[in-house]
Computed example of a mutant assay.
Amino acid sequence: MDRRSLLTKGGAATFGALALTAVTDGTAFAGTAQSQTSGHPWAGPLPDPATTPVPDPPFPKGLTAGERRNLRTFDELDFDVFSHADWDRLDESHARTIRVHWPDGHYTDGIDKHIADLAAMFVWAPDTRIESHHLRVATGDLTAVAGVMRGTFTRPMPDGKGGTIAPTGKKYAISMATVGLWTPRGVMDEEFLFWDNQTFYQQIGLA
């Protein structure tokens, strides 16, 4: 399977397809399918992690050193770098020329643009953070991780037209998935972000 082609054309089904591919390829998968052997406390299908906290499982068994390194780097990215808006460290996980694909279909090129886009989220929701990685896939130079992003709309949001949208004070908690393609030196040169924008805007009171 051409994973890069799947990523650029797969839409909402991409994460599931990647997980299925990992299983059929014999790649370790952490989650409900491995719950009896991986130590995950959930023995059956997971609840919605955005509304019911789901403990993170251990890393899958059978990973190569590179696959384990990439998953560990991604944990550090989400839990420490992103959640604390420590943008000076983003190059620990992102190539300078990274291409990032966003849930609405547009993409950006370069780490500086990506930093600006991420920082913009903290302008109106300074408590934005990633709280879990309840599913992890790693195979070769590809990772796919599902988690939960949370925050609160407490400050004015720039509307892109020179004005602002008044904060609603509403909290959001959305399930998301990130698929990354990694270079041999252990940074992503392409990243795909997936979440439901409609649910996101509904939760913060803008839809």
Rank of each mutant, 00 (worst) to 15 (best):
M1L: 08
M1T: 14
R4D: 07
S5F: 09
L7S: 06
G10V: 05
G11M: 00
A13P: 00
A17F: 11
L18E: 02
A19S: 13
L20P: 00
A22Q: 06
V23K: 10
T27L: 14
Q34D: 14
Q36R: 13
H40V: 11
W42D: 10
D48S: 05
D48Q: 04
P49G: 01
A50S: 09
P53D: 10
V54D: 11
P57G: 04
K61W: 05
L63T: 09
L63Q: 09
A65G: 11
R69D: 04
R72N: 14
T73A: 12
E76H: 15
F79Y: 12
S83M: 06
W87D: 13
L90S: 07
E92C: 06
A95L: 04
R99Q: 14
D104G: 06
D109F: 12
G110K: 04
D112S: 10
A116I: 10
D117N: 13
A120W: 12
D127A: 07
R129Y: 14
H133E: 07
L135Q: 15
R136A: 11
R136C: 07
V137S: 03
A138F: 02
T139H: 15
L142Y: 07
M149F: 04
M149A: 06
M149K: 06
G151M: 09
G151H: 07
T152H: 06
F153E: 00
R155E: 15
P158H: 01
K161L: 03
G162Y: 08
A166H: 12
G169R: 03
Y172C: 06
V179H: 13
L181P: 02
W182R: 06
L193T: 15
